[in-house]
Amino acid sequence: MSEALLELGALRKHFPVRDMLGRSRGAVRAVDGVSLTVPRGSVLAIVGESGCGKSTLGRLALRLIEPDAGSIRFEGEDLRALSAAGLRARRREMQLIFQDPFASLDPRMTVEAAIAEPLRLHRIVPRGGERARVAELLERVGLRPESARRWPHEFSGGQRQRIAIARALASGPKLIIGDEPVSALDVSVQAQVVNLLGDLIRDLGLTFVLISHDLGVVRHIADRVAVMYLGQIVEEGPAAQVFAAPRHPYTRALLASVPGTGVKTLPIEGDVPSPITPPPGCRFHTRCPHAEAICREQVPLLEGFAHRAACHLQDRLPPAPALHEADAGGDRLRRLQAFFTPTGAPA
Protein backbone atom coordinates (compact mmCIF):
# COMPACT_ATOMS: atom_id res chain seq x y z
CA MET A 1 0.00 0.00 0.00
CA SER A 2 1.34 3.41 -0.97
CA GLU A 3 2.60 5.69 1.80
CA ALA A 4 0.94 8.62 0.02
CA LEU A 5 -2.82 8.78 0.56
CA LEU A 6 -3.41 11.81 -1.68
CA GLU A 7 -1.26 13.00 -4.59
CA LEU A 8 -1.93 16.16 -6.59
CA GLY A 9 0.02 16.60 -9.81
CA ALA A 10 0.27 19.93 -11.69
CA LEU A 11 -3.31 20.75 -10.72
CA ARG A 12 -4.83 23.76 -12.47
CA LYS A 13 -8.13 25.60 -12.25
CA HIS A 14 -8.85 28.87 -14.08
CA PHE A 15 -12.23 30.57 -13.72
CA PRO A 16 -13.27 32.52 -16.85
CA VAL A 17 -14.10 36.20 -16.46
CA ARG A 18 -16.75 37.68 -18.76
CA ASP A 19 -18.24 41.12 -19.19
CA MET A 20 -21.94 41.96 -19.18
CA LEU A 21 -22.22 40.92 -22.84
CA GLY A 22 -20.68 37.55 -22.19
CA ARG A 23 -17.38 38.34 -23.85
CA SER A 24 -14.24 36.78 -22.41
CA ARG A 25 -12.03 39.08 -20.38
CA GLY A 26 -9.48 36.54 -19.26
CA ALA A 27 -9.50 34.06 -16.39
CA VAL A 28 -8.77 34.04 -12.68
CA ARG A 29 -5.86 31.66 -12.15
CA ALA A 30 -7.08 30.33 -8.83
CA VAL A 31 -4.87 27.23 -8.83
CA ASP A 32 -2.01 27.23 -11.31
CA GLY A 33 0.10 24.09 -11.41
CA VAL A 34 0.06 22.79 -7.82
CA SER A 35 1.70 19.48 -6.96
CA LEU A 36 1.46 18.09 -3.42
CA THR A 37 1.73 14.75 -1.67
CA VAL A 38 -0.14 14.02 1.56
CA PRO A 39 1.33 10.99 3.39
CA ARG A 40 -1.07 8.61 5.08
CA GLY A 41 -1.77 9.55 8.70
CA SER A 42 -0.22 13.02 8.43
CA VAL A 43 -1.58 16.55 8.90
CA LEU A 44 -0.83 18.97 6.06
CA ALA A 45 -1.65 22.65 6.52
CA ILE A 46 -2.19 24.90 3.49
CA VAL A 47 -1.72 28.55 4.44
CA GLY A 48 -1.76 31.90 2.68
CA GLU A 49 -3.65 35.17 2.32
CA SER A 50 -7.33 35.28 1.42
CA GLY A 51 -7.73 34.74 -2.31
CA CYS A 52 -4.52 32.75 -2.77
CA GLY A 53 -6.46 29.66 -3.94
CA LYS A 54 -6.17 27.38 -0.92
CA SER A 55 -9.93 26.70 -0.57
CA THR A 56 -10.23 26.05 -4.30
CA LEU A 57 -7.34 23.59 -4.02
CA GLY A 58 -9.14 21.72 -1.23
CA ARG A 59 -12.29 21.38 -3.31
CA LEU A 60 -10.30 20.28 -6.34
CA ALA A 61 -8.67 17.55 -4.26
CA LEU A 62 -12.13 16.09 -3.53
CA ARG A 63 -13.36 16.70 -7.10
CA LEU A 64 -16.10 18.98 -5.82
CA ILE A 65 -14.73 21.28 -8.52
CA GLU A 66 -13.47 19.82 -11.78
CA PRO A 67 -9.86 20.80 -12.56
CA ASP A 68 -8.83 22.11 -15.97
CA ALA A 69 -5.66 20.01 -15.95
CA GLY A 70 -3.55 17.86 -13.67
CA SER A 71 -4.01 14.65 -11.73
CA ILE A 72 -5.69 13.68 -8.45
CA ARG A 73 -4.72 10.29 -7.08
CA PHE A 74 -6.24 8.79 -3.93
CA GLU A 75 -4.52 5.60 -2.72
CA GLY A 76 -2.93 5.43 -6.16
CA GLU A 77 -6.28 5.58 -8.00
CA ASP A 78 -6.89 8.39 -10.50
CA LEU A 79 -10.03 10.17 -9.28
CA ARG A 80 -10.41 12.01 -12.59
CA ALA A 81 -10.82 8.69 -14.41
CA LEU A 82 -13.64 7.45 -12.16
CA SER A 83 -17.24 7.27 -13.29
CA ALA A 84 -19.96 9.02 -11.29
CA ALA A 85 -20.72 5.77 -9.46
CA GLY A 86 -17.06 5.07 -8.80
CA LEU A 87 -16.49 8.57 -7.46
CA ARG A 88 -19.54 8.29 -5.21
CA ALA A 89 -18.13 5.08 -3.72
CA ARG A 90 -14.81 6.82 -3.06
CA ARG A 91 -16.52 9.84 -1.52
CA ARG A 92 -17.26 7.99 1.71
CA GLU A 93 -13.49 7.90 2.30
CA MET A 94 -13.02 11.66 1.73
CA GLN A 95 -14.90 14.30 3.70
CA LEU A 96 -14.91 18.08 4.08
CA ILE A 97 -15.48 20.28 7.15
CA PHE A 98 -16.67 23.72 6.07
CA GLN A 99 -15.75 27.07 7.58
CA ASP A 100 -19.25 28.18 8.60
CA PRO A 101 -20.90 25.49 10.75
CA PHE A 102 -24.31 27.15 10.54
CA ALA A 103 -24.40 27.44 6.74
CA SER A 104 -23.16 23.85 6.30
CA LEU A 105 -26.04 22.35 8.32
CA ASP A 106 -29.54 22.18 6.83
CA PRO A 107 -31.83 24.13 9.20
CA ARG A 108 -34.75 21.87 8.19
CA MET A 109 -33.00 18.72 9.44
CA THR A 110 -32.51 17.65 13.02
CA VAL A 111 -29.02 16.77 14.17
CA GLU A 112 -29.89 13.08 13.94
CA ALA A 113 -31.12 13.41 10.36
CA ALA A 114 -28.01 15.38 9.30
CA ILE A 115 -25.57 12.85 10.74
CA ALA A 116 -27.59 9.82 9.63
CA GLU A 117 -27.78 11.02 6.01
CA PRO A 118 -24.31 9.70 4.99
CA LEU A 119 -25.01 6.50 6.92
CA ARG A 120 -28.08 5.88 4.75
CA LEU A 121 -26.48 7.13 1.55
CA HIS A 122 -23.52 4.74 1.78
CA ARG A 123 -25.44 1.97 3.61
CA ILE A 124 -22.88 1.92 6.39
CA VAL A 125 -25.06 0.52 9.19
CA PRO A 126 -27.94 -1.97 9.06
CA ARG A 127 -31.47 -0.59 8.91
CA GLY A 128 -32.51 0.46 12.40
CA GLY A 129 -28.95 0.93 13.62
CA GLU A 130 -28.60 4.56 12.62
CA ARG A 131 -29.79 6.05 15.91
CA ALA A 132 -27.18 4.17 17.94
CA ARG A 133 -24.42 5.18 15.53
CA VAL A 134 -25.48 8.84 15.66
CA ALA A 135 -25.41 8.74 19.47
CA GLU A 136 -21.92 7.22 19.37
CA LEU A 137 -20.67 9.93 17.00
CA LEU A 138 -22.13 12.72 19.13
CA GLU A 139 -20.40 11.36 22.23
CA ARG A 140 -17.11 11.12 20.33
CA VAL A 141 -17.23 14.85 19.53
CA GLY A 142 -18.20 15.80 23.08
CA LEU A 143 -21.97 16.22 22.77
CA ARG A 144 -24.75 14.41 24.64
CA PRO A 145 -26.70 11.76 22.67
CA GLU A 146 -30.02 13.50 23.38
CA SER A 147 -28.76 16.42 21.29
CA ALA A 148 -29.75 14.35 18.25
CA ARG A 149 -33.38 15.44 18.56
CA ARG A 150 -32.59 19.16 18.42
CA TRP A 151 -32.21 21.56 15.50
CA PRO A 152 -29.04 23.40 14.38
CA HIS A 153 -30.26 26.83 15.50
CA GLU A 154 -30.48 25.57 19.09
CA PHE A 155 -26.69 25.20 19.35
CA SER A 156 -23.78 27.59 19.73
CA GLY A 157 -21.23 28.01 16.96
CA GLY A 158 -18.74 25.65 18.59
CA GLN A 159 -21.41 22.99 19.15
CA ARG A 160 -22.54 23.28 15.52
CA GLN A 161 -18.98 22.72 14.35
CA ARG A 162 -18.81 19.62 16.55
CA ILE A 163 -21.96 18.39 14.80
CA ALA A 164 -20.35 19.07 11.42
CA ILE A 165 -17.29 17.09 12.52
CA ALA A 166 -19.51 14.20 13.64
CA ARG A 167 -21.20 14.21 10.23
CA ALA A 168 -17.79 14.15 8.51
CA LEU A 169 -16.80 11.13 10.64
CA ALA A 170 -20.02 9.24 9.96
CA SER A 171 -18.84 7.56 6.76
CA GLY A 172 -15.55 6.39 8.31
CA PRO A 173 -13.28 8.53 6.09
CA LYS A 174 -9.56 8.12 5.60
CA LEU A 175 -9.08 11.75 4.56
CA ILE A 176 -10.70 14.89 5.97
CA ILE A 177 -10.14 18.37 4.58
CA GLY A 178 -10.92 21.18 7.01
CA ASP A 179 -11.53 24.50 5.25
CA GLU A 180 -10.88 27.09 7.98
CA PRO A 181 -12.75 24.86 10.46
CA VAL A 182 -12.20 27.14 13.47
CA SER A 183 -11.91 30.63 11.98
CA ALA A 184 -15.64 31.40 12.43
CA LEU A 185 -15.52 30.53 16.15
CA ASP A 186 -14.65 32.56 19.23
CA VAL A 187 -11.01 32.30 20.25
CA SER A 188 -11.83 30.37 23.43
CA VAL A 189 -13.92 27.86 21.45
CA GLN A 190 -11.20 27.52 18.82
CA ALA A 191 -8.91 25.91 21.40
CA GLN A 192 -11.55 23.31 22.29
CA VAL A 193 -12.24 22.38 18.66
CA VAL A 194 -8.52 22.24 17.84
CA ASN A 195 -8.04 19.88 20.80
CA LEU A 196 -10.93 17.76 19.53
CA LEU A 197 -9.50 17.57 16.01
CA GLY A 198 -6.09 16.63 17.37
CA ASP A 199 -7.59 13.82 19.48
CA LEU A 200 -9.62 12.48 16.54
CA ILE A 201 -6.63 12.53 14.19
CA ARG A 202 -4.56 10.60 16.72
CA ASP A 203 -7.23 8.13 17.86
CA LEU A 204 -8.69 7.33 14.42
CA GLY A 205 -5.48 7.53 12.41
CA LEU A 206 -6.97 10.14 10.08
CA THR A 207 -5.14 11.96 7.33
CA PHE A 208 -6.04 15.64 7.65
CA VAL A 209 -5.58 18.63 5.34
CA LEU A 210 -6.04 21.90 7.24
CA ILE A 211 -6.73 25.03 5.21
CA SER A 212 -6.07 28.00 7.46
CA HIS A 213 -4.60 31.45 7.87
CA ASP A 214 -4.16 31.09 11.66
CA LEU A 215 -0.49 30.22 12.07
CA GLY A 216 -0.96 29.49 15.77
CA VAL A 217 -3.42 26.69 14.98
CA VAL A 218 -1.23 25.45 12.14
CA ARG A 219 1.88 25.31 14.33
CA HIS A 220 0.00 23.37 17.00
CA ILE A 221 -1.52 20.66 14.80
CA ALA A 222 0.34 20.34 11.46
CA ASP A 223 3.14 17.94 10.51
CA ARG A 224 3.81 19.71 7.20
CA VAL A 225 3.01 23.17 5.85
CA ALA A 226 2.43 24.33 2.27
CA VAL A 227 2.42 28.11 1.68
CA MET A 228 0.35 29.41 -1.25
CA TYR A 229 0.64 32.71 -3.08
CA LEU A 230 -1.41 33.65 -6.15
CA GLY A 231 -2.42 30.09 -6.97
CA GLN A 232 0.99 28.48 -6.53
CA ILE A 233 2.94 26.75 -3.76
CA VAL A 234 5.94 28.91 -2.83
CA GLU A 235 7.20 26.85 0.11
CA GLU A 236 6.49 23.39 1.49
CA GLY A 237 8.11 21.32 4.19
CA PRO A 238 7.97 19.99 7.76
CA ALA A 239 6.13 22.46 10.00
CA ALA A 240 9.00 22.76 12.46
CA GLN A 241 11.45 23.66 9.68
CA VAL A 242 9.12 26.10 7.93
CA PHE A 243 8.50 27.97 11.18
CA ALA A 244 12.09 27.86 12.38
CA ALA A 245 13.86 28.59 9.08
CA PRO A 246 11.49 29.85 6.35
CA ARG A 247 13.17 29.93 2.94
CA HIS A 248 10.77 32.16 1.01
CA PRO A 249 10.40 35.91 1.67
CA TYR A 250 6.62 35.57 1.57
CA THR A 251 6.65 32.92 4.31
CA ARG A 252 8.86 35.18 6.42
CA ALA A 253 6.43 38.05 5.91
CA LEU A 254 3.48 35.85 6.97
CA LEU A 255 5.26 34.88 10.19
CA ALA A 256 6.26 38.48 10.90
CA SER A 257 2.66 39.63 10.45
CA VAL A 258 1.45 37.65 13.48
CA PRO A 259 0.95 40.08 16.40
CA GLY A 260 3.23 39.59 19.37
CA THR A 261 5.90 37.51 17.67
CA GLY A 262 8.53 40.23 17.80
CA VAL A 263 9.85 39.02 14.43
CA LYS A 264 11.47 41.77 12.38
CA THR A 265 11.84 41.48 8.62
CA LEU A 266 11.83 43.80 5.65
CA PRO A 267 8.27 45.02 5.00
CA ILE A 268 6.15 43.92 2.05
CA GLU A 269 4.94 46.85 0.00
CA GLY A 270 2.13 47.15 -2.51
CA ASP A 271 -1.00 45.12 -3.11
CA VAL A 272 -1.42 41.52 -4.21
CA PRO A 273 -1.33 41.45 -8.04
CA SER A 274 -4.45 40.46 -9.96
CA PRO A 275 -4.85 36.68 -10.35
CA ILE A 276 -6.16 37.43 -13.85
CA THR A 277 -2.84 38.91 -14.98
CA PRO A 278 -0.16 37.66 -12.56
CA PRO A 279 3.30 39.18 -13.01
CA PRO A 280 5.94 37.32 -15.03
CA GLY A 281 8.77 35.45 -13.37
CA CYS A 282 8.28 35.04 -9.64
CA ARG A 283 4.75 36.16 -8.81
CA PHE A 284 5.96 37.65 -5.54
CA HIS A 285 8.68 39.84 -7.05
CA THR A 286 6.45 42.96 -7.21
CA ARG A 287 6.30 42.98 -3.39
CA CYS A 288 9.55 41.27 -2.45
CA PRO A 289 12.22 43.50 -0.83
CA HIS A 290 14.96 41.14 -2.07
CA ALA A 291 13.89 40.88 -5.74
CA GLU A 292 16.55 40.93 -8.44
CA ALA A 293 16.43 40.90 -12.24
CA ILE A 294 16.20 37.11 -12.43
CA CYS A 295 13.07 37.21 -10.25
CA ARG A 296 11.31 39.39 -12.83
CA GLU A 297 12.35 37.23 -15.78
CA GLN A 298 12.32 33.55 -14.78
CA VAL A 299 9.72 31.46 -12.99
CA PRO A 300 11.38 29.85 -9.94
CA LEU A 301 11.01 26.10 -9.45
CA LEU A 302 9.94 24.53 -6.18
CA GLU A 303 13.36 23.15 -5.28
CA GLY A 304 14.63 21.16 -2.36
CA PHE A 305 14.05 17.74 -0.83
CA ALA A 306 12.06 17.57 2.41
CA HIS A 307 11.89 21.39 2.66
CA ARG A 308 11.26 23.09 -0.70
CA ALA A 309 10.92 26.72 -1.77
CA ALA A 310 10.25 28.47 -5.09
CA CYS A 311 12.77 31.29 -4.76
CA HIS A 312 15.81 32.09 -6.91
CA LEU A 313 17.51 33.69 -3.91
CA GLN A 314 16.71 31.21 -1.14
CA ASP A 315 20.40 30.33 -0.67
CA ARG A 316 21.42 34.00 -0.54
CA LEU A 317 18.77 35.48 1.70
CA PRO A 318 19.83 36.82 5.11
CA PRO A 319 19.18 34.42 8.02
CA ALA A 320 15.51 34.10 8.90
CA PRO A 321 14.41 35.81 12.15
CA ALA A 322 14.18 33.31 15.01
CA LEU A 323 10.75 32.35 16.31
CA HIS A 324 10.48 31.70 20.03
CA GLU A 325 8.16 29.27 21.79
CA ALA A 326 5.60 32.01 22.41
CA ASP A 327 5.65 33.16 18.78
CA ALA A 328 3.14 32.63 15.96
CA GLY A 329 0.22 32.47 18.35
CA GLY A 330 1.28 29.07 19.69
CA ASP A 331 1.59 30.25 23.31
CA ARG A 332 -1.80 31.98 23.14
CA LEU A 333 -3.38 28.77 21.89
CA ARG A 334 -1.74 26.66 24.61
CA ARG A 335 -2.89 29.05 27.34
CA LEU A 336 -6.44 28.92 26.02
CA GLN A 337 -6.35 25.14 25.84
CA ALA A 338 -5.19 24.91 29.45
CA PHE A 339 -7.95 27.26 30.58
CA PHE A 340 -10.89 26.00 28.54
CA THR A 341 -10.24 22.25 28.41
CA PRO A 342 -11.53 21.37 31.95
CA THR A 343 -14.73 19.38 32.21
CA GLY A 344 -17.97 21.10 31.47
CA ALA A 345 -20.41 21.60 28.63
CA PRO A 346 -18.51 22.04 25.35
CA ALA A 347 -18.93 25.32 23.55
Rank of each mutant, 00 (worst) to 15 (best):
H324L: 14
D271S: 13
A245P: 00
A306L: 11
H324M: 08
P318W: 05
C282V: 08
H285P: 00
A253Y: 06
P238W: 08
F284S: 03
E269S: 15
T286V: 08
T277Y: 07
V217R: 04
V258C: 11
P275M: 10
P319R: 14
S212T: 13
E292H: 00
P319F: 13
A240N: 05
C295N: 03
L336C: 13
D315W: 01
R252E: 13
R224Q: 12
P319V: 08
P273R: 15
A239H: 07
G237R: 13
P300R: 10
F305V: 15
A306I: 03
R283S: 06
F284Q: 03
C282H: 10
G262E: 13
V227P: 06
H285V: 00
T286H: 04
H220Q: 11
I211H: 12
V225Y: 06
C288Y: 03
A253V: 02
L301G: 13
R287E: 02
P300D: 07
C311N: 11
V242F: 04
V234C: 08
V217L: 10
H248G: 05
R224I: 02
V263F: 14
G216V: 10
V263R: 15
L210E: 10
E325F: 12
C282K: 12
G304P: 03
T261G: 14
T261H: 08
D327V: 02
P321N: 09
R247I: 05
A222C: 09
Q241L: 11
V242S: 03
P319Q: 12
A256F: 04
D214E: 12
L302M: 13
